[in-house]
Nucleic acid binder design. Structure first.
Lengths: 200, 200
DNA sequence: GATAACGCTTAACCTTGGTTAAGAAATGAC
DNA sequence: GTCATTTCTTAACCAAGGTTAAGCGTTATC
């Protein structure tokens, strides 16, 4: 077992092997190109202006991608939890300066790999490419769906949808961030929750 | 000159020849596969449920693409004016029943061509493909930009943007349709216009 | 354990857009 | 030209979210 493998959360190993059946050799190869990195709550993995040259497997913890709009408001694009990849994907693909903050909401364990090494490994481990493509596709369609929701639904409808479809978010994400995710002010979310509670 | 060429608006000829320099032969070939069609104000070129098997060059007039949402509200996706192509593009590419109404806002002159014939002509006239790709790309990015505006801007900001960027629309499109395009009720647009007028 | 910082809630006030209904103006049909 | 239809405007009322400001409870920090 590699030095890295010893440090990481067992869950990581589990996912890689269980869901995509990497062989022990593939698994070791993969890990040998990844740097283990710990970041604390509120630390940034990436800031606007930086070129995103690596991506990071989120092994433990959760993060938020957000931008700051013309009015100076933070706008949360999405949250990431265990078993997702972090980065500013626009910047990653274009290698131009990005626009996203990527910030830890909890203390996080990351496994970081450079774009070049990842590309190289994708060639050597076809399953890796499949797995990553699957992840990216899922997150892209979730993103689109969310944009569409913000465009067409009321804040209340978005809130109720979120409770129904991703109740676990409320266990780990502060309400102020959920408000931003829903595109409303924290006070408005608070008031809405009160109104909904009173309706029962 | 073909029979069709004699009937069409000179502007059509102008655009084809000027902007993309079709040769007279290419031009005649193109027209020989297109059916001239006149539709009246409020007539439909396409309705939801129909499979979009043709596309139509809008030679004169203007149209709107719209869908009816769950609440029974019409939602205008975009307007088309001279020198654009009409259709339900999702349905056109998938050949599944579509969701869009395509309706004439003014009396329209169309040049209709089947999907098969267009594909065939694209092979024989490379410039046609270039030209059409250019059109589609532009309209796709305009569409995205608009979705983004509805998501992030207030109705007032969207209205002011529209005046600034597409003032000509107000000369030809009834305000009720512009309201729908801006994602608000006609009464609200009317009130907003009044408020803005009073601010001066 | 006192103090500060943070996250969340509450309240009052304001603005804005939806809703309903009615009326005015413009357009179309005969 | 008259009548009907369509389009646009106005008004009153309501609901909902933004803004500002204050307070409260929990968590950190020393």
């Amino acid at each position: 077992m590699s030095v890295i493998a010893k440090h990481i959360n067992p869950k990581f190993q589990h996912l890689f092997q269980d869901r995509f059946c990497f062989t022990p050799n593939e698994y070791e190869l993969l890990l040998s190109y990844m740097q283990f990195q710990h970041i604390h709550k509120k630390d940034f993995y990436l800031r606007p202006g930086e070129i995103c040259r690596t991506k990071a497997y989120l092994n433990k913890g959760c993060t938020r991608n957000f931008v700051v709009d013309e009015r100076g408001h933070e706008r949360i694009l999405f949250f990431a939890f265990e078993d997702w990849w972090l980065g500013d994907f626009d910047s990653y693909y274009t290698q131009k300066p990005g626009t996203n903050y990527v910030q830890a909401i909890e203390d996080c364990e990351l496994l970081v790999i450079s774009k070049e090494n990842f590309a190289m490994l994708e060639e050597r481990i076809p399953k890796l490419k499949q797995w990553y493509t699957y992840k990216v596709t899922r997150s892209a369609s979730a993103s689109l769906k969310r944009m569409e929701e913000i465009r067409t639904l009321t804040p209340k409808e978005r809130y109720l949808n979120l409770i129904e479809q991703h109740p676990h978010i409320f266990q780990r994400i502060p309400l102020q961030y959920i408000a931003s995710f829903l595109n409303i002010e924290p006070q408005s979310l608070s008031r809405m929750r009160k109104r909904l509670a009173e309706e029962r």
